[in-house]
Simulated assay, not measured.
Amino acid sequence: MTITISHVFDFRSVSPSKAIHNHNVYIPPFKSDKPIKNVHDKTSPLYQILTWDSLRNNITRIINNVNTTTNLKDIIRDLLELNLIRGRGIFCRSVLTSQMSHPEFSDVFSALVAVVNSMFFEVGQLFIRRIVWQFKSAYKRNDKPQLLNTVKFIAHLVNQKVVHGIIAIEILTVLLEKPSEYSVTTAVRFLVECGSMLQDVLPNKLYGVFDLFCGILYEARFGKRVEFMIEKLLAIRKDDFQGYPAVRPELDLVEEEDKLTHEVSLDEDIDPEFSLDVFNLDPYFEMNEKFYEGMKKDLLGDDEESDGDQESGSDVESDEESEGDQATSGKVSNSDARSSHSSDSPGSANSDENGGKRKRN
């Protein structure tokens, strides 16, 4: 039988029992990994449950360690060791939860999502669905803290070109079409974050948004505080958003040709696929694991080869000092976990078959 990629990544649920659903309590790694080693039948549901718990705990732990740009590359490398295809729901939930707790690191989280998206299109696609769904939900409930943090995150995802800038224009239009003091201030903060990028990619549509701001300023409906914020925004625009760059240099981790941009609209009926956050029995589990191992070797193969070269080099004594210097100068640092294999990887091919809209920039 010929097995296609769509067969390999078939994540249909197979009616998990009540006991399976109870496996959602955090278990420390030293406790969760030990039972896995005692299960010899890797095709059994019990093995799938234990590996799922370990995957969930490890992804959550790694995401909770994201705080600055200094450890971001290590975080990415650790994540790639895990099956992010199987755990994409956990990844999205963990990142959104952490960003909500630490909105000051929104640009760091967006850089992390950009790197993962460049390697695994389906993970990035799910993340964009989740965060747009979160915005719509927060706006409908008038949840002001969640709304502000969500638009801040979306702004940086626009800057990283993970999602197309048209969603930013739609969000600004929604916030300003029925303006309130809070919606206007939220729109101002949102535009300060991503205005530099929008000015480059959608200047005409951005011009229309500033017309709305000028109309609100002219009507003087919301007091001096709102007027001051709009005037400051207009001054920032006049200076071409100097001092408010789209992406900080240390967070520009994805090559331009590897960036994958998702197109989504607020008018779409979005399915956040929350069923991916819980355990589902996978009939193709063993095949999926082997498939991901192959992808991981493509993504981290350079690191493994570099480590192997260093180990072999330590055991061999060179008689000629000049040759040793040449060997040392020829080593390549592989501290960056990014990879240009994303466009050739099987996961990318799968996303072209099953994924929604995609635009290469």
Rank of each mutant, 00 (worst) to 15 (best):
V226S: 00
R130F: 05
S110M: 00
D252K: 07
V25H: 09
H21D: 14
I36A: 01
K140Y: 15
F241Y: 15
D325Y: 09
R93G: 11
V226A: 00
N71Y: 04
C194S: 09
Q326E: 12
D10K: 10
R56Q: 14
K136S: 06
E273L: 08
F120G: 01
P283H: 12
L281R: 11
Q326G: 06
S17V: 03
F91I: 02
V163C: 03
M197E: 13
F120C: 07
A111K: 04
M1G: 11
D143R: 00
S306W: 13
R93F: 15
A337Q: 05
A114F: 01
L50Q: 04
E257V: 12
Y47C: 00
N57C: 11
S351Y: 14
I166S: 08
L253R: 04
D315E: 09
K34C: 08
G124R: 09
S343D: 10
E256M: 01
S15K: 14
I166C: 00
V192N: 13
L147H: 01
I171G: 03
I75S: 04
Q242K: 14
S180L: 10
S318M: 10
F105K: 13
V162S: 04
T69R: 00
L202C: 01
V184A: 00
F241Q: 01
R141A: 15
R237M: 01
K238S: 14
E170W: 07
G89F: 02
K297G: 07
L281H: 14
I63Y: 05
L206N: 02
K238D: 13
L147R: 04
A337S: 10
E193G: 03
S94R: 02
E104H: 10
V158N: 04
K259T: 13
V174T: 10
I167C: 00
R86D: 05
